[in-house]
Write a protein that binds this DNA or RNA. Structure first.
Lengths: 180, 180
DNA sequence: CAATTAAGTTAACCGGAGTTAATGATTAAT
DNA sequence: ATTAATCATTAACTCCGGTTAACTTAATTG
């Protein structure tokens, strides 16, 4: 399936710190992350950053708003590690789906998975405290922990790195300070 | 289409305060709200309530976890006003979709709409303060405001009614107290 | 190696939300 | 009509996160 994707789009290399696309720009391409790591985040008017999700090798990322509704991208995607990505033009995606009725089932289960993932995230943001969210994140994304900065983890949890550091001390993730 | 739905399920009347289904129970039926108003909410272990959404006439509600994945209902749905509802058994829904390939497109656009709605909610919970969420809610759900208790509005925003009352005073929705 | 930069932690202060309880106000019930 | 019950508001207090700035440590660079 990797081969089929390559036929539809272009293999591109994004070095650490490069943008796949930016909030507000038009676009709507679908990106398949082959290897590496990217973050998808909202930028608010006053310059704050809120991370929607991290995306690693083997996963897709696109702004639904842009791909489906034709609006500008509703968030930004930035490469956190040198990443290899298949960039599939929006039209190729739309054509693929309309020309290929057999794909609707695949699309269906992808959308369903996405909706259920969003629902989990909603649950966590609505019902859990930042500390609980952090502990859950450490469990569920143990493999990612070492690849992320404290700042990015904090922005994913919806708090500042200062607050995250306090949480890490509270729950015992930081050692006692050396005696003077 | 209302007629077709009625063939698939049973028209039921839920008086104010009645449960359509409860978190933790097995079920997975699909409910179409013909008239009235219900709330869908999570109940945490320590007895707190967090409202996912309000559903009014003309909309569907079901626990995806239960209908699709066969898990227990992941939340509770309670009638806030006397409501008329079409209760469609889970099997009828699943059969309908498998027997009727033409429906996958409809299902697709429903899932897409759902995913985008969840994404908006994620954005609000992640990026906006309770006060900002309240003001947005007043704009967007102006018609609902009069039908909801302050407690239910607060639980939808993820705060307590006490905090909501303070917000309402801050933003000037509550008049000055009468002089003694 | 020294110097600079960036990332993480800590401190101090402020403000908003949770909790509990008291008070008002409105509605329902006897 | 009086009582009871429910809901909304307010007060007092505590706790936690945001903000700013200092400080430490590590990593980079000259």
């Amino acid at each position: 399936m990797n081969e089929q994707l390559k036929k539809l789009g272009n293999v591109r290399h994004f070095p650490k710190g490069a943008f796949l696309f930016r909030q507000g720009d038009s676009g709507g391409n679908l990106f398949f992350i082959q290897s590496g790591l990217v973050k998808a985040y909202y930028e608010t008017l006053d310059g704050k950053e809120f991370i929607k999700s991290f995306v690693t090798g083997g996963e897709f990322i696109a702004s639904m708003q842009a791909t489906v509704a034709g609006n500008p991208n509703s968030f930004t995607v930035l490469s956190l590690e040198d990443s290899v990505v298949i960039d599939i033009p929006k039209q190729a995606v739309l054509n693929l789906v309309t020309d290929n009725p057999g794909l609707t089932d695949v699309l269906n289960s992808m959308l369903l998975k996405l909706a259920m993932k969003k629902e989990r995230r909603e649950y966590e943001l609505l019902c859990m405290s930042p500390e609980e969210r952090y502990l859950l994140f450490c469990e569920r994304e143990a493999g990612l922990l070492g690849r992320l900065s404290q700042n990015d983890i904090a922005r994913y949890l919806g708090i500042t790195p200062v607050a995250l550091s306090r949480i890490r001390r509270r729950v015992g993730f930081l050692m006692d300070r050396p005696p003077e």
